[in-house]
Design a protein around this nucleic acid. Structure first.
Length: 783
DNA sequence: GCATCACATGTTTTT
DNA sequence: CATGTGATGC
């Protein structure tokens, strides 16, 4: 390669980055802090390798999500063009599926195996528990599936799990584990964990294959290595054993998936796996302002078990971090929405540069409502996957069966969809017959004439099998064609159309489902063959739904935000028990993971960072007082500005009123937004744009029923303000700006009654009007 | 076998 | 709160 092209690849790289790109061969660890340009390093390194004569086929690049893989692919295409095709850039799971599809026969599966997601695997475990006559209360499928999954992530087989089982419970779990694996095999199916595990197993038990892949993937590059689990780590060890050309990139401070088996020590211990691995550290951050980095550094330094490092930026201090404390989650949401309006009116040109993060998906709702109110386009990433919807699962089950008729879970799912008179009783009879004659579920269906059943159910089964027979002939057609035919053959679409024609509340739902089916159809069109369609739909995650370029604010969990960046970031729900989450607070290791999560959240922001929290929050129907997150306390005071309203903080009801004692430097919330607020008020009832906002909502189809009117203020619960006398009451005039302890800022619309009975109607930021007795309302005049 | 209702139940993060 | 499950009645 010419010196020119090399220097083009190194352009705008710093010394360490260049070193990582150029490092010739042998194991390499790039310890890459947040925003330190690791994707740039990875893509340039790949381009450089190819320029050096490495064939694209010899490169395997592993990313964390399909979305990240897509991103990396397109960036490499930009660098080297078509040469890049032929290179494997995928997630661990997708890569394993590709390998398994080729060699499944070697481990007793066929290439058309099904992939069970969590809910399907749990369903199978339920069946096993019932089959073994175990008490389903004592052995909940949820808990057992957790245990089995964790064991698999640690590479335990049923036998080795039994070996270390020390009590009755664990022995029973082992029994379930054994039967579960048998049923998976009978169904020709892998669960998510098996995709990794069985690939390792395949390569370990077939030296020729191991050698072939070791030679084929002469260069291995793995991103986000801190989030690999044991199986993934072993796979890397296995594939890299011969060439030793393994480059892993990661940041142990950003390890946030321990709950599903990830172990950041895989990154720290990489050198013990590949001795004489070269270590390169990237500490310069190109993303965020120094204030944001200082905040992130300060928080993460509270973790005991970590390797010390400090990010720095050349971008200057930038703005301070804004803290806001709201009465409740609706006010918090109103604040976020208002700030977004004001950001978009000035500092930030596109909604796409703004993101709102939260710890749990359930928190999105209040924020969505506030955004809808202000007519701000948004998209929610995560929550329930598109592919988790009922109708999608039904159709996919049929498509799977066309490929893999032994798939018991899919058979059970659709054998009676549409209705074929095969109910619970019939299924029981089929199971019993199978047990008595040692037949798998599918084998009983083939022998249905001999199975004792009501005749209606028997002919239902025959009808089902007949339809499948018909559909299986279409196996080699494009997935879109298959899907169309199956909708016809099963009358699935017809039934929905009928339902949609009928009047009543169901019609709307049916219409909605038809639309969703159309969406699936367009996904099917992107694939040429059934198996590629099935593989990719099985492995897509909610974050893969993220479409770029949309002019919309992004809402997602902090987990979902990994690897992304935005000009402005709102970290909401910064409260004890929520973030750090209740379930993580008692265990120091889990608490440190929460802190890493916080670190990840903070470092997503380029320029503007907001941290918000509330006085009270309603979770699962209960309203609870909330305390500020300990992570807020860990922020150096000189980096933050408190935008909360003084009146609210004066309350002695709240134990932590002294958390931020500095005078706020910023304007009291709302002042800067007055015009924006007035503007949005008129667009509130704009139905057309509202439905746009809902359309952009890609995650689920939750309806936006406004949360019902809030219960009236309960005396004593939160009334930090004393009862007023007549003189004080008379200070309030129509048009006055006030702030309310719970609902925040508002304007007095009218006052009726006299003296101590005066009642004010106040309009709040959420555009709702509420009535208050002036003598007692927890409000305070502003200005 | 299926629809409907009441109740309970469990709720972090996700490849 | 919202979803799922279980019991009841048709």
């Amino acid at each position: 390669m010419t010196a020119d092209r090399t220097s083009a690849l190194l352009e705008d790289l710093n010394e360490e980055q260049s070193e990582a790109v150029l490092y010739q061969s042998g194991p390499l660890v790039v310890v890459a802090g947040a925003g330190s340009g690791k994707t740039r390093v990875l893509t340039r390194r790949i381009a450089y390798l190819i320029a050096q004569g490495v064939l694209p086929e010899q490169i395997l690049a592993i990313t964390f999500t399909n979305k990240a893989a897509q991103e990396m692919k397109s960036r490499i295409y930009e660098l080297i063009g078509e040469t890049a095709s032929g290179m494997w850039i995928s997630t661990f799971h997708s890569a394993c599926v590709r390998i398994l599809r080729r060699h499944a026969g070697r481990i007793g599966f066929t290439p058309s195996f099904s992939i069970y997601d969590d809910s399907e695997s749990r369903r199978l475990i339920e069946l096993v528990i019932a089959h073994l006559n175990m008490d389903h209360k004592r052995y909940s499928a949820r808990a057992i599936s957790h245990i089995i999954s964790a064991s698999k992530n640690d590479m335990y087989s049923p036998a080795s799990y039994l070996g270390k089982a020390s009590n009755e419970f664990e022995k029973s779990v082992a029994a379930i584990f054994f039967e579960y694996q048998k049923r998976l095999r009978d169904a020709n199916a892998f669960d998510f964990d098996d995709l990794l595990l069985k690939t390792v197993e395949l390569l370990k038990s077939n030296e020729d294959l191991a050698l072939a892949y070791q030679e084929r993937f002469y260069h291995l590059l793995v991103d986000e290595y801190q989030d690999t689990n044991r199986a993934q780590n072993e796979l890397v060890a296995l594939l890299g054993a011969k060439s030793q050309n393994v480059c892993v990139v990661g940041d142990s401070d950003q390890s946030i998936y321990a709950f599903r088996g990830a172990n950041f020590r895989n990154l720290l211990n990489f050198q013990s796996m590949f001795s004489n691995a070269k270590v390169i550290v990237l500490n310069q951050n190109y993303r965020s302002t120094q204030n944001i980095l200082d905040a992130a550094n300060a928080v993460i330094e509270h973790n005991e078990s970590r390797v010390k490092k400090r990010l720095w930026s050349a971008l200057g201090p930038g703005e301070k971090i804004k803290i806001f404390r709201a009465g409740d989650e609706r006010y918090e949401a109103a604040f976020v929405a208002n700030e977004i309006v004001s950001l978009a009116a000035g500092k930030i040109t596109s909604y796409a540069d703004i993101a709102v993060f939260y710890r749990t998906n359930a928190q999105s709702r209040a924020i969505e409502e506030a955004l809808v109110d202000r007519n701000i386009a948004y998209k929610v990433i995560g929550g329930i996957r598109f592919f988790d919807r009922k109708e999608i699962k039904d159709i996919l089950a049929y498509m799977r069966l066309i490929d893999n008729i032994r798939d018991e879970i899919s058979i059970r799912r659709v054998i009676n969809v549409p209705k074929r008179k095969i109910g619970a009783k019939a299924l029981e009879a089929i199971e019993r017959y199978g047990e008595e004659n040692s037949l798998t579920f599918y084998e009983v269906l083939l022998d249905i004439d001999n199975c004792p059943l009501p005749s209606a159910a028997r002919s239902g089964v025959k009808k089902f099998l007949g339809q499948l027979e018909l559909l299986r002939d279409l196996r080699d057609l494009p997935p879109k064609k298959i899907m169309e035919d199956l909708l016809d053959v099963t009358s699935y679409r017809e039934d929905l159309l009928e339902e949609a024609d009928e009047a009543g509340p169901l019609a709307n739902q049916a219409m909605n489902r038809l639309e969703i089916i159309d969406e699936l159809m367009s996904v099917a069109m992107e694939h040429e063959d059934l198996e590629s369609f099935l593989s990719s739909t099985a492995l897509l995650s909610p974050s893969d739904d993220l479409k770029s370029g949309n002019e919309a604010v992004t809402l997602m969990t902090i987990h979902g935000a990994k690897g992304l960046e935005f000009d402005a970031v709102f970290l909401t729900g910064m409260e004890e028990s929520l973030f750090p989450h209740d379930r993580a607070m008692s265990d120091p290791e889990e608490l440190e993971e929460e802190r890493r999560l916080c670190y990840v959240g903070i470092t997503r922001a380029r320029k503007y960072l907001y941290l918000t929290h509330t006085y009270t929050r309603t979770i699962f129907g209960r309203t609870l007082d909330s305390l500020p997150s300990r992570f807020l306390r860990e922020l150096p005071k000189d980096l933050v500005v408190d935008m909360s309203i003084h009146a609210v903080r004066a309350s002695d009801t709240f134990r932590d009123a002294a958390l931020f004692t500095d005078e706020p430097e910023g304007v009291i919330f709302g002042m800067g937004n007055a015009s924006a607020m007035a503007g949005s008020r008129y667009s509130y009832s704009d139905i057309a744009s509202r439905s746009y906002a809902e359309k952009t909502f890609t995650g689920s189809n939750r309806n936006h029923t406004k949360a019902d009117v809030r219960r009236d203020h309960t005396p004593g619960e939160m009334n930090p303000f004393k009862v007023r006398d007549v003189d004080e009451i008379n200070l309030f005039r129509v048009g006055d700006k006030i702030s309310h302890a719970r609902y925040g800022q508002g304007v007095v619309k009218s006052i009726t009654g006299s003296d101590g009975d005066k009642v004010a109607v106040i309009s709040f930021l959420d555009h709702k009007e509420r009535k208050f007795l002036l003598a007692a309302a927890p409000i305070k005049l502003l200005q």
